[in-house]
Amino acid sequence: MASAPSKLYSDDVSLVVVLLDTNPFFWTTSTLSFSHFLSHVLAFLNAILTLNQLNQVVIIATGCNSCDYIYDSSKTANQSFGNGRMPTLCTTLLQNLEEFMTKDEKLGIEEAEERITGSLLSGSLSMALCYIQRVFRSGSLHPQPRILCLQGSPDGPEQYVAIMNAIFSAQRSMVPIDSCYIGAQNSAFLQQASYITGGVHHKPQQLDGLFQYLLTIFATDLHSRSFLQLPKPVGVDFRASCFCHKNTIDMGYICSVCLSIFCTRHKECSTCGSTFGHAQSDDASATNRKRKAPDS
Protein backbone atom coordinates (compact mmCIF):
# COMPACT_ATOMS: atom_id res chain seq x y z
CA MET A 1 0.00 0.00 0.00
CA ALA A 2 1.20 3.44 -0.78
CA SER A 3 1.89 5.78 2.09
CA ALA A 4 -1.16 7.63 3.26
CA PRO A 5 -0.51 11.18 2.11
CA SER A 6 0.02 10.14 -1.47
CA LYS A 7 -3.33 8.37 -1.82
CA LEU A 8 -5.12 10.36 -4.42
CA TYR A 9 -8.48 9.09 -5.53
CA SER A 10 -10.88 10.24 -8.12
CA ASP A 11 -14.46 9.13 -8.64
CA ASP A 12 -13.87 6.17 -10.90
CA VAL A 13 -11.09 4.42 -9.03
CA SER A 14 -12.25 0.89 -8.60
CA LEU A 15 -11.23 -2.33 -6.99
CA VAL A 16 -12.52 -5.32 -8.90
CA VAL A 17 -12.46 -8.69 -7.21
CA VAL A 18 -12.88 -11.31 -9.90
CA LEU A 19 -14.04 -14.78 -8.94
CA LEU A 20 -12.79 -17.17 -11.56
CA ASP A 21 -14.58 -20.47 -11.96
CA THR A 22 -11.90 -23.12 -12.37
CA ASN A 23 -14.11 -26.14 -12.04
CA PRO A 24 -12.52 -28.65 -14.44
CA PHE A 25 -15.75 -30.62 -14.83
CA PHE A 26 -17.45 -27.61 -16.21
CA TRP A 27 -14.64 -26.57 -18.51
CA THR A 28 -14.34 -29.97 -20.15
CA THR A 29 -17.97 -29.71 -21.22
CA SER A 30 -18.06 -26.04 -22.08
CA THR A 31 -18.16 -24.82 -25.66
CA LEU A 32 -15.77 -22.05 -24.74
CA SER A 33 -12.31 -23.44 -24.11
CA PHE A 34 -10.58 -22.58 -20.87
CA SER A 35 -7.61 -21.03 -22.63
CA HIS A 36 -9.83 -18.74 -24.64
CA PHE A 37 -11.68 -17.83 -21.54
CA LEU A 38 -8.43 -17.02 -19.78
CA SER A 39 -7.17 -14.86 -22.60
CA HIS A 40 -10.37 -12.85 -22.59
CA VAL A 41 -10.21 -12.44 -18.86
CA LEU A 42 -6.55 -11.48 -18.86
CA ALA A 43 -7.09 -8.82 -21.48
CA PHE A 44 -10.10 -7.58 -19.53
CA LEU A 45 -8.07 -7.31 -16.33
CA ASN A 46 -5.40 -5.40 -18.14
CA ALA A 47 -8.05 -3.08 -19.50
CA ILE A 48 -9.29 -2.38 -15.97
CA LEU A 49 -5.77 -1.64 -14.82
CA THR A 50 -5.22 0.60 -17.82
CA LEU A 51 -8.26 2.73 -17.12
CA ASN A 52 -6.82 4.25 -14.00
CA GLN A 53 -3.43 4.04 -12.40
CA LEU A 54 -5.06 3.44 -9.04
CA ASN A 55 -7.39 0.72 -10.16
CA GLN A 56 -6.85 -2.54 -8.40
CA VAL A 57 -7.65 -6.07 -9.40
CA VAL A 58 -7.81 -9.16 -7.22
CA ILE A 59 -8.48 -12.60 -8.63
CA ILE A 60 -9.78 -15.47 -6.59
CA ALA A 61 -9.95 -18.92 -8.10
CA THR A 62 -13.12 -20.83 -7.30
CA GLY A 63 -12.21 -24.48 -7.38
CA CYS A 64 -14.12 -27.62 -6.52
CA ASN A 65 -12.48 -28.19 -3.20
CA SER A 66 -10.85 -24.92 -2.29
CA CYS A 67 -10.56 -21.25 -3.14
CA ASP A 68 -7.50 -19.07 -3.18
CA TYR A 69 -6.18 -15.69 -4.18
CA ILE A 70 -4.23 -16.10 -7.35
CA TYR A 71 -3.49 -12.50 -8.23
CA ASP A 72 -3.46 -9.17 -6.45
CA SER A 73 -2.38 -6.15 -8.46
CA SER A 74 -1.54 -4.12 -5.36
CA LYS A 75 1.09 -6.66 -4.37
CA THR A 76 2.79 -6.91 -7.72
CA ALA A 77 2.53 -3.21 -8.53
CA ASN A 78 5.54 -2.26 -6.50
CA GLN A 79 7.76 -4.86 -8.01
CA SER A 80 9.84 -3.95 -10.94
CA PHE A 81 7.82 -4.24 -14.10
CA GLY A 82 10.68 -5.67 -16.04
CA ASN A 83 9.11 -6.37 -19.36
CA GLY A 84 5.77 -4.74 -18.92
CA ARG A 85 2.58 -5.17 -17.00
CA MET A 86 0.69 -7.63 -19.15
CA PRO A 87 3.39 -10.32 -19.28
CA THR A 88 3.91 -10.01 -15.53
CA LEU A 89 0.20 -10.31 -14.96
CA CYS A 90 0.03 -13.34 -17.24
CA THR A 91 2.94 -15.21 -15.78
CA THR A 92 2.06 -14.60 -12.13
CA LEU A 93 -1.56 -15.41 -12.66
CA LEU A 94 -0.95 -18.55 -14.69
CA GLN A 95 1.76 -19.74 -12.33
CA ASN A 96 -0.50 -19.30 -9.32
CA LEU A 97 -3.43 -20.83 -11.12
CA GLU A 98 -1.44 -23.92 -11.99
CA GLU A 99 -0.30 -24.36 -8.40
CA PHE A 100 -3.83 -23.85 -7.26
CA MET A 101 -5.19 -26.49 -9.61
CA THR A 102 -2.68 -29.06 -8.42
CA LYS A 103 -3.54 -28.35 -4.81
CA ASP A 104 -7.24 -28.43 -5.54
CA GLU A 105 -6.94 -31.78 -7.23
CA LYS A 106 -5.08 -33.28 -4.29
CA LEU A 107 -7.70 -32.01 -1.90
CA GLY A 108 -10.34 -33.64 -4.05
CA ILE A 109 -8.67 -37.00 -3.78
CA GLU A 110 -8.30 -36.74 -0.03
CA GLU A 111 -11.83 -35.56 0.55
CA ALA A 112 -14.01 -38.39 -0.55
CA GLU A 113 -14.67 -40.79 -3.33
CA GLU A 114 -17.92 -38.97 -3.89
CA ARG A 115 -17.71 -36.86 -7.04
CA ILE A 116 -18.13 -33.20 -6.40
CA THR A 117 -19.00 -31.28 -9.47
CA GLY A 118 -20.05 -27.81 -8.34
CA SER A 119 -17.58 -25.08 -7.56
CA LEU A 120 -17.22 -23.38 -4.22
CA LEU A 121 -18.85 -20.08 -4.96
CA SER A 122 -19.71 -19.47 -1.32
CA GLY A 123 -16.08 -19.76 -0.31
CA SER A 124 -14.76 -17.40 -2.92
CA LEU A 125 -17.54 -14.88 -2.27
CA SER A 126 -16.65 -14.88 1.41
CA MET A 127 -12.98 -14.42 0.63
CA ALA A 128 -13.77 -11.53 -1.68
CA LEU A 129 -15.88 -9.87 1.00
CA CYS A 130 -13.15 -10.35 3.59
CA TYR A 131 -10.67 -8.73 1.28
CA ILE A 132 -13.00 -5.82 0.68
CA GLN A 133 -13.60 -5.41 4.39
CA ARG A 134 -9.88 -5.14 4.87
CA VAL A 135 -9.73 -2.44 2.22
CA PHE A 136 -12.61 -0.58 3.88
CA ARG A 137 -10.79 -0.59 7.16
CA SER A 138 -7.46 0.44 5.74
CA GLY A 139 -8.43 4.11 5.86
CA SER A 140 -10.87 6.65 4.68
CA LEU A 141 -9.48 6.67 1.17
CA HIS A 142 -9.99 3.50 -0.78
CA PRO A 143 -11.09 2.52 -4.24
CA GLN A 144 -14.73 1.62 -4.81
CA PRO A 145 -14.93 -2.15 -4.62
CA ARG A 146 -17.11 -4.47 -6.63
CA ILE A 147 -17.16 -8.21 -7.17
CA LEU A 148 -17.39 -9.91 -10.53
CA CYS A 149 -18.30 -13.59 -10.65
CA LEU A 150 -17.29 -15.38 -13.82
CA GLN A 151 -19.18 -18.58 -13.26
CA GLY A 152 -19.91 -21.50 -15.48
CA SER A 153 -20.66 -24.39 -13.15
CA PRO A 154 -24.25 -25.03 -12.18
CA ASP A 155 -25.43 -23.88 -8.76
CA GLY A 156 -24.56 -26.10 -5.82
CA PRO A 157 -27.84 -26.01 -3.90
CA GLU A 158 -25.97 -27.28 -0.83
CA GLN A 159 -24.19 -23.94 -0.58
CA TYR A 160 -27.44 -22.03 -0.45
CA VAL A 161 -27.18 -20.75 3.12
CA ALA A 162 -23.56 -19.75 2.84
CA ILE A 163 -24.09 -17.97 -0.45
CA MET A 164 -27.16 -16.13 0.74
CA ASN A 165 -25.27 -15.00 3.82
CA ALA A 166 -22.47 -13.73 1.63
CA ILE A 167 -24.95 -11.92 -0.58
CA PHE A 168 -26.62 -10.23 2.33
CA SER A 169 -23.36 -9.12 3.84
CA ALA A 170 -22.34 -7.73 0.46
CA GLN A 171 -25.62 -5.86 0.38
CA ARG A 172 -25.00 -4.48 3.84
CA SER A 173 -21.56 -3.23 2.95
CA MET A 174 -22.90 -1.86 -0.35
CA VAL A 175 -20.67 -3.97 -2.54
CA PRO A 176 -22.34 -4.79 -5.83
CA ILE A 177 -21.87 -8.32 -7.14
CA ASP A 178 -21.72 -8.45 -10.92
CA SER A 179 -22.15 -11.84 -12.45
CA CYS A 180 -21.48 -13.21 -15.87
CA TYR A 181 -22.79 -16.72 -16.30
CA ILE A 182 -21.21 -18.70 -19.11
CA GLY A 183 -22.73 -22.12 -18.40
CA ALA A 184 -25.67 -23.80 -20.02
CA GLN A 185 -28.48 -23.16 -17.56
CA ASN A 186 -28.80 -19.86 -15.83
CA SER A 187 -27.71 -19.61 -12.23
CA ALA A 188 -30.37 -18.72 -9.69
CA PHE A 189 -27.75 -17.83 -7.08
CA LEU A 190 -25.96 -15.33 -9.26
CA GLN A 191 -29.20 -13.79 -10.45
CA GLN A 192 -30.23 -13.25 -6.88
CA ALA A 193 -26.78 -12.03 -5.88
CA SER A 194 -26.75 -9.34 -8.54
CA TYR A 195 -30.37 -8.45 -7.98
CA ILE A 196 -30.01 -8.02 -4.23
CA THR A 197 -26.71 -6.15 -4.29
CA GLY A 198 -27.54 -3.94 -7.23
CA GLY A 199 -25.00 -5.46 -9.56
CA VAL A 200 -25.41 -6.57 -13.14
CA HIS A 201 -26.21 -10.11 -14.13
CA HIS A 202 -25.71 -11.14 -17.68
CA LYS A 203 -25.63 -14.39 -19.56
CA PRO A 204 -23.73 -13.82 -22.79
CA GLN A 205 -25.42 -15.25 -25.86
CA GLN A 206 -22.26 -15.40 -27.89
CA LEU A 207 -19.40 -16.89 -25.96
CA ASP A 208 -16.66 -16.09 -28.46
CA GLY A 209 -17.48 -12.44 -27.88
CA LEU A 210 -17.04 -12.73 -24.13
CA PHE A 211 -14.39 -10.00 -24.16
CA GLN A 212 -16.78 -7.55 -25.70
CA TYR A 213 -19.37 -8.34 -23.04
CA LEU A 214 -16.79 -7.86 -20.35
CA LEU A 215 -15.64 -4.51 -21.74
CA THR A 216 -19.08 -3.18 -22.54
CA ILE A 217 -20.89 -4.21 -19.40
CA PHE A 218 -18.56 -5.24 -16.64
CA ALA A 219 -15.78 -2.71 -17.14
CA THR A 220 -18.19 0.11 -16.31
CA ASP A 221 -17.14 1.71 -13.04
CA LEU A 222 -19.68 2.34 -10.31
CA HIS A 223 -19.55 6.08 -10.82
CA SER A 224 -20.60 5.82 -14.46
CA ARG A 225 -23.32 3.32 -13.69
CA SER A 226 -25.48 6.07 -12.31
CA PHE A 227 -25.66 7.54 -15.79
CA LEU A 228 -26.01 4.38 -17.81
CA GLN A 229 -28.58 1.74 -18.44
CA LEU A 230 -26.94 -1.65 -18.25
CA PRO A 231 -28.58 -4.89 -19.36
CA LYS A 232 -31.10 -6.27 -16.91
CA PRO A 233 -32.44 -9.79 -16.86
CA VAL A 234 -36.15 -9.96 -17.54
CA GLY A 235 -36.92 -12.07 -14.53
CA VAL A 236 -35.00 -13.26 -11.53
CA ASP A 237 -35.13 -16.83 -10.33
CA PHE A 238 -35.85 -16.49 -6.64
CA ARG A 239 -36.02 -20.14 -5.78
CA ALA A 240 -34.43 -21.22 -2.54
CA SER A 241 -32.71 -24.36 -1.33
CA CYS A 242 -34.02 -26.20 1.67
CA PHE A 243 -31.81 -26.38 4.73
CA CYS A 244 -32.27 -30.09 5.28
CA HIS A 245 -31.43 -31.74 1.97
CA LYS A 246 -30.06 -28.75 0.05
CA ASN A 247 -32.54 -29.25 -2.75
CA THR A 248 -33.71 -26.39 -4.88
CA ILE A 249 -37.41 -26.09 -4.21
CA ASP A 250 -40.18 -23.76 -5.17
CA MET A 251 -42.54 -24.82 -2.42
CA GLY A 252 -41.66 -25.77 1.10
CA TYR A 253 -42.06 -25.30 4.83
CA ILE A 254 -40.73 -22.27 6.65
CA CYS A 255 -39.98 -22.06 10.34
CA SER A 256 -42.10 -19.26 11.70
CA VAL A 257 -39.41 -18.35 14.22
CA CYS A 258 -36.17 -18.26 12.27
CA LEU A 259 -37.37 -18.50 8.69
CA SER A 260 -35.38 -21.64 7.91
CA ILE A 261 -36.61 -23.44 4.84
CA PHE A 262 -37.38 -27.18 4.71
CA CYS A 263 -38.63 -29.37 1.94
CA THR A 264 -40.44 -31.83 4.21
CA ARG A 265 -42.32 -31.48 7.43
CA HIS A 266 -40.23 -31.64 10.58
CA LYS A 267 -41.27 -31.92 14.18
CA GLU A 268 -38.68 -29.43 15.21
CA CYS A 269 -36.65 -26.73 13.48
CA SER A 270 -33.11 -27.95 13.04
CA THR A 271 -31.77 -24.40 13.07
CA CYS A 272 -33.43 -22.76 16.04
CA GLY A 273 -34.92 -25.73 17.79
CA SER A 274 -38.51 -24.51 18.00
CA THR A 275 -41.05 -27.32 18.00
CA PHE A 276 -43.77 -27.10 15.43
CA GLY A 277 -47.37 -27.61 16.34
CA HIS A 278 -49.32 -30.56 15.00
CA ALA A 279 -51.63 -29.96 12.14
CA GLN A 280 -55.03 -31.57 12.23
CA SER A 281 -54.19 -33.96 9.50
CA ASP A 282 -50.82 -35.48 8.72
CA ASP A 283 -51.00 -35.70 4.99
CA ALA A 284 -52.36 -32.28 4.23
CA SER A 285 -50.71 -29.82 6.56
CA ALA A 286 -50.02 -27.31 3.91
CA THR A 287 -51.18 -24.36 5.93
CA ASN A 288 -47.72 -22.99 6.35
CA ARG A 289 -46.60 -23.78 2.91
CA LYS A 290 -45.28 -20.83 1.00
CA ARG A 291 -44.51 -20.49 -2.62
CA LYS A 292 -41.45 -19.05 -4.10
CA ALA A 293 -42.10 -18.46 -7.74
CA PRO A 294 -40.09 -16.80 -10.44
CA ASP A 295 -40.71 -13.14 -10.32
CA SER A 296 -41.31 -11.12 -13.40
Partner: peptide, 16 residues
Protein backbone atom coordinates in the same frame (compact mmCIF):
# COMPACT_ATOMS: atom_id res chain seq x y z
CA UNK B 1 -6.68 7.62 -18.29
CA UNK B 2 -7.30 11.30 -18.48
CA UNK B 3 -10.73 10.92 -20.02
CA UNK B 4 -13.93 11.31 -18.04
CA UNK B 5 -15.14 7.91 -16.76
CA UNK B 6 -17.93 7.68 -19.28
CA UNK B 7 -15.60 8.42 -22.18
CA UNK B 8 -13.28 5.66 -20.99
CA UNK B 9 -16.13 3.23 -21.21
CA UNK B 10 -16.99 4.37 -24.72
CA UNK B 11 -13.44 3.85 -25.87
CA UNK B 12 -13.38 0.38 -24.36
CA UNK B 13 -16.57 -0.74 -25.98
CA UNK B 14 -15.40 0.53 -29.36
CA UNK B 15 -11.98 -1.02 -28.99
CA UNK B 16 -12.60 -4.00 -31.21
Amino acid sequence: RSLPPLAKKYVLQMLY
